[in-house]
Amino acid sequence: MSDTVFDKIGGEGAVNAAVDIFYRKVLSDSSISQFFETTDMDAQRVKQKAFLTMAFGGPNNYSGQEMRNAHAPLVAKGLNESHFSAVAGHLQDTLEELKVPSELINEAMAIAASTHDDVLGL
């Protein structure tokens, strides 16, 4: 079995390094920050970390149905295509900032793209 991006970039340590950078980017982006603002930033960080772990092909426990259910309240608040693209853009920027090789970035972006329909409830 071939190694996942998660393994190649250094496992959990690398995800920890990425998660603050990624979370800071989405919170600073006023077009999507409303979906990430919360009273409990630590809980939100845990969610971001789970998302990045999944995008890197690492161990995660999310089914498509769970992704759908978890994002349904956000879809009800207006989550749409443009927000999805913005988040994907921040993921790409984060990985580039961390100097992750481009073929691994492509792999991660493909996994993120595969969640599109579940996240947007399509």
Partner: peptide, 15 residues
């Protein structure tokens, strides 16, 4: 506490 935590994070502090 809540607003300052977010601002401090956005100013570069690790969570």
């Amino acid at each position: 506490v809540q607003t300052t935590k977010q601002k401090a994070f956005l100013s570069g502090a690790n969570l």
